[in-house]
């Protein structure tokens, strides 16, 4: 039970006080913070609308002249709301979070390369190493390598798009499945984990490329 700082009412944890609508925001999972069921399929337009509606009611801007305790509650509730929105808006982080909630957390720093990506990852790392070397040398070679890396980047983005489509289908299948127990469930979780770790890995790869291109530009 938590106590509302505005009207003193004791209640179950929630984002807004059931009695007076003041921000509470304690100990909630991110689905609950946005008042959503724990489903993988989320309509982005409705999610944004909910986020904005709740934001308008609990944001610190609305409590600038209120008591210190209420301002603090507003700050914490809004931080939670923001995190919930950012996590659930993106299908990949939503999937990862959902798995975590259901006790299937993927390793934090997933360094192992998915098998079907191994060859390409190796090539990208080689290209980046070449670019690092060429950066200090003549301009023409660096330019050519930058072009090649840029192309690779586009390809990776396409792969992520493909993966995301696969992910959305997985989400729909899972939600239809109703989260029931049984053999099907484990297979679905496995599949979900596989797609997610692949996309997460591709994103890391793109970030490495961007960083390398950025410092190549700065040099």
């Amino acid at each position: 039970m938590i106590k509302c700082q505005a009207c003193d009412r004791e209640q179950q944890p929630r984002l807004l006080c059931a009695q007076c609508g003041a921000p509470l925001g304690a100990g909630l999972d991110l689905f609950a913070a946005l008042g959503l069921p724990r489903k993988l399929t989320i309509d982005p337009a409705r999610l944004e609308q909910t986020y904005h509606d709740l934001g308008r009611r609990i944001h610190p801007d609305r409590f600038a002249s209120k008591s210190v305790r209420l301002r603090d509650a507003s700050l914490r509730a809004t931080a939670l709301l923001t995190r919930a929105y950012r996590t659930l808006r993106d299908p990949v982080s939503r999937g990862l979070y959902w798995l975590e909630l259901n006790g299937h957390k993927l390793a934090d720093n997933n360094k192992s390369v998915p098998a079907d990506l191994a060859e390409m990852v190796f090539e990208v790392q080689e290209q980046l190493a070449d670019l690092r070397v060429a950066r200090d040398g003549s301009g023409g070679e660096a330019e050519r390598l930058r072009g090649a890396v840029d192309e690779r980047r586009t390809e990776l983005h396409r792969m992520i798009e493909g993966g995301s489509r696969e992910l959305v289908q997985n989400f729909a299948r899972w939600d239809a499945h109703g989260g029931a127990n049984g053999a099907g469930r484990d297979a679905l979780v496995m599949e979900l984990k596989l797609v997610l770790s692949k996309i997460a890995y591709l994103r890391t790869l793109i970030r490495d490329i961007d960083r390398e291109l950025d410092s190549a530009q700065a040099a």
């Binding site: 610190p60 700050l75 914490r76 809004t78 931080a79 939670l80 923001t82 995190r83 929105y85 950012r86």
Partner: peptide, 8 residues
């Protein structure tokens, strides 16, 4: 570029 307020 994370929206504020935010916490971790």
């Amino acid at each position: 570029n994370t929206t504020i307020p935010t916490s971790t």
